[in-house]
Design a protein around this nucleic acid. Structure first.
Lengths: 162, 162
DNA sequence: CAGATTTAAATGCATTTGCAAATATCCCTG
DNA sequence: CAGGGATATTTGCAAATGCATTTAAATCTG
């Protein structure tokens, strides 16, 4: 072996954030976008006595029937302790109902009530509007590809659960 | 004109969330993904005395030179009052420096210090790692398209500012 | 099958958050 | 150029958050 080996790759060639640029960095863009999406929804919901955790729980419950509370926490992206208190309120308002799990008496399942469905139905058009604004001018094909990538990303970041 | 007009389109044909499905709904997926991304970063940063607002401010300041505080709030997706307090801490730790704006004495510009840059450099590999995990197995071409869509979305949701 | 370990959910408590108000300065209009 | 509104930032304070603990029940292990 001679001295004339090819030049080493630099020890750490991790590109810097400044080199990538904020607006080419996906997590940054996603935080910016969701920050505004969530803030604008929060403002609209405030008038209806709904907080972000309550709104998210309702949204998930409109789709998923009777999940455990810890599952609902994952699906709705809310800390379990925060969710527990949000459910107190939602139950107090008659929008959801807690029900002991049949086979595990530690566990509680949560169901949306008819009133809860009605509440979500008044709320959904606002969410749909915010969604439409986000995707304004983006062709269907591109939207589908985008959602496809998001789905791959979700499986990537999941720990191993739900 | 006869009675036999074609059947009316239903009054409101807004598709329901249940019809779309949670995992086909972009805002839901984005909240799930960023929820976990942010949570895992937050856990890692906690040991270094960095909160999410402090970390975000540092990250932006590593790229943008001397923004106004209100600009930094937008860029780093942090409420301005929260940012104000985060900057108190960062300044106390010598990681940033506030400087009165030359032409507007109401305004303050924020600069990262050398110590701040060093701090961010120890933090950046963790962010890059979380980013890499998110995009694992997703080809370059798809990543580029994804970021392109995000950029369009960002311009869509911006009010009119920054 | 008793004891140790894990898991589900709720709760106590200190911290963080964000709205609204306060303060200081700037800019526009008559 | 004075006065009224707009803008930049900070701060007071009540509410929300999340970590750690508690309680209760299930599951594992020797």
């Amino acid at each position: 072996m001679t001295d004339q080996s090819p030049p080493e790759k630099p020890p750490s060639s991790l590109p810097r954030l400044g080199e990538i640029g904020l607006t080419n960095y996906a997590p940054y863009l996603m935080n910016r976008i969701m920050g505004r999406y969530n803030a604008s929804l929060r403002d609209e919901m405030a008038g209806l006595g709904l907080t972000t955790p309550k709104m998210r729980a309702l949204a998930v419950l409109s789709v998923i029937e009777g999940p455990l509370i810890r599952e609902l926490a994952v699906y709705s992206v809310v800390e379990q302790s925060t969710l527990s208190r949000a459910l107190d309120q939602l139950a107090g308002e008659g929008l959801v109902r807690r029900e002991a799990d049949a086979s595990d008496s530690r566990a509680t399942r949560v169901f949306i009530t008819e009133a809860g469905r009605t509440a979500f139905e008044t709320l959904w058009p606002r969410m749909a509007e915010a969604h439409a604004r986000m995707f304004r001018g983006i062709p269907d094909e591109e939207r589908r590809a985008f959602v496809g990538t998001l789905q791959k990303m979700l499986t990537n970041i999941r720990k191993h659960e739900i």
